[in-house]
Simulated scan of single mutants.
Amino acid sequence: MNLFDRGLEKESLNEDIRFLELADLNENFDEMELLIEKLRFSKNTEAKQYSEVYSIHRKLAKGELTVNEASKMIGRMDISVPELKVFSELMLLPEYLNLSEYKVMNGIANKIDLDTIENENFFKASYRCRLLIMSANAYLGLGDLKKAQFYAGLTIEHATDNRFLAYGYLIHGNTLLFSDYREAKKSFLKGLEHSEKGKSHYKELRRSLSFLENYYGEKNEYLDYNSLEVGEQQGVAYSFINEEKIAEALQILDRIENEKQNNNLLGFHFFYKGLATKSKDYFFKSVKHFKLSDDNYCVKLPLDELEKLGENKALLELITL
């Protein structure tokens, strides 16, 4: 049925609002933007609020707004819908995740009260899954693996959509990256079973599988040699380092060094440069950028290499405090 064939009676209006959340979850962004525009012209006040909040969310995800700009716009709104009050805070978390600001994420996530939505409905269930995923990611970045696994497990338990299952298994696998190759891979592969090729969760699962294979020196069938994304190119460079193709690895790393990267990506960048050159300076730069991004989990990568190169373990532990 064409989007504009449906009337704006209450039942149809509720259906449009529900489809808005589903379109966002399933990355059907063309449909999402049409629904935002449709609801904007509604005579219903509630519909207009959904249009406005999801419009800010969409612009934030596209990079047309910064997280601070989005927060100010939300702050100027008089939101009366309980679901939207929750979502207006919840929608900021993926942006802080992209910035690897795990402490900020954790602080916001812990303040979100789902029970302000009194009745158990589609939106409360969906927002619960969104919140569980973000909490799991925050605790992973902060290095609290037990809590990260706990929230990943809750995500899987409460999943209302394949996307949530995929992310639950992704985060669970990431908690095992440095400790259990087989179980981490098993979790990532389960996640792939619930993912759709081309979607963001599919790409992230393959990227984690690629890192896993590189980290343990296993045959890597998850590399994307054609991608222009920094994270994918770093994975190829890591594979070349493992194959002792140092010149090829450094060529990639030098090429992407001046591309836009957050502190977390720079932490990986200098870690790979350190592996390629055996330079302590690069490993210390890696530690610096991982710490700037609040990543207490992946900072172990350069720290382990510095210890192998003879740095005092007690001193290294002091650096990470």
Results as ranks from 00 to 15, higher is better:
146 K>I: 13
145 L>E: 02
145 L>Y: 09
135 S>E: 14
158 H>A: 15
141 G>W: 03
142 L>V: 02
163 R>Q: 12
166 A>Y: 01
159 A>G: 07
135 S>R: 12
143 G>E: 06
143 G>N: 02
136 A>F: 13
148 A>Y: 07
158 H>N: 15
159 A>S: 14
147 K>Y: 09
142 L>C: 10
165 L>P: 02
169 Y>V: 08
147 K>R: 11
156 I>R: 04
161 D>Q: 10
165 L>E: 11
144 D>K: 10
161 D>V: 06
147 K>I: 06
144 D>T: 04
157 E>F: 13
142 L>Y: 03
156 I>K: 07
134 M>C: 01
145 L>H: 09
137 N>V: 08
147 K>A: 05
136 A>V: 12
146 K>P: 00
135 S>Y: 09
159 A>I: 07
145 L>I: 08
156 I>M: 05
144 D>F: 02
168 G>F: 09
134 M>T: 03
142 L>M: 09
135 S>I: 13
135 S>D: 05
161 D>Y: 08
139 Y>Q: 01
166 A>E: 12
140 L>D: 04
160 T>Q: 15
136 A>I: 12
135 S>W: 04
146 K>A: 08
163 R>S: 11
147 K>H: 03
161 D>K: 10
168 G>Q: 12
166 A>K: 05
152 A>I: 03
143 G>T: 01
153 G>V: 04
157 E>W: 11
149 Q>K: 08
136 A>T: 08
150 F>Y: 09
158 H>F: 15
152 A>Q: 02
153 G>W: 01
137 N>L: 09
142 L>Q: 04
162 N>K: 12
139 Y>L: 08
135 S>L: 14
152 A>P: 06
160 T>K: 14
165 L>N: 08
153 G>H: 03
153 G>N: 02
153 G>R: 05
151 Y>A: 05
147 K>F: 06
147 K>Q: 08
154 L>H: 01
169 Y>I: 07
147 K>G: 04
169 Y>S: 06
145 L>R: 08
153 G>Y: 04
159 A>Q: 11
156 I>N: 02
163 R>Y: 14
163 R>P: 00
163 R>V: 15
152 A>T: 03
162 N>D: 15
148 A>C: 12
167 Y>H: 15
160 T>P: 00
144 D>R: 12
150 F>P: 06
152 A>D: 01
137 N>W: 11
163 R>G: 15
157 E>P: 00
151 Y>G: 00
162 N>M: 08
163 R>D: 12
138 A>N: 02
139 Y>T: 06
